[in-house]
Amino acid sequence: MNMNMQQQRKAGKWKLGAVLLLLVGGGLLSCRENAINDLSPADSPVYITNYDRSANFSQYKTFSLPDSVIVESNDSYTADQTPLSSRFVTNVANALTGRGFQRVSRGDSADLGVAIIRVNNQYTGIASNPYSYYSNYWGGGFGGLGGVGYSPYYQSYYTYQVTDQYWEIQIVDLKNRPATGTGTGTGSAPPQLTVIYNATIRGADIADQQSVDNAITAIFNQSPYLKAAE
């Protein structure tokens, strides 16, 4: 009897220990979940830039940048002009001008095409062919470019796919674009434009103009190679 009670007491102690462990462990396990709760809005965004290592940026002098941004939503593309997107366009134009490039009017011939893209994808894994938006974006001066193809120079880029919305800045080389219609014998192969610079703003949605300013400043600060010849 006495022995039995003692055994029960023992078992009780171990159970108590197990319960305590679960309680304390469970409470502590939530530590990591709270790790970024105190992140300020200015600290949340992530700016990712990449460029074609073979591109010589000093060969370009002019760039074309429309006043609107492209809104990419899954497979469809529309142009959009809001106070926020205008701020983007103004800031990017000013930053590029500050680096010695010259902006041309819409439709005029330019060395670089700059695209500001608002991506609103609702799924992970962007694997569609999202290049038809170049068709008329830089205006009629490149009339023959309808339906151009596009070849990304990078492979590792899609590591940071998330389901949220983000902004993207792309610069393509218009100066060294292949002549239209000179397909490689098949006749149907569209000429390829090369993206030589890419920047994305991830991690937090841009909600106000201050965020736009911060983003563009940071992006150009980490891209010192974006510079026209003196």
């Binding site: 396990l29 790790a35 992140l39 600290d43 965004p45 990712i48 830039t49 590792s156 891209s223």
Partner: peptide
Amino acid sequence: GYQYNKQRLDRQVYEYGDQSISAVQTRTLS
């Protein structure tokens, strides 16, 4: 038991392969 550590680093530019990533890092280890 349970061990947890965390460190917040101010915004810096990190080079990952060809990419430059500007971010505030919050490093955690459990």
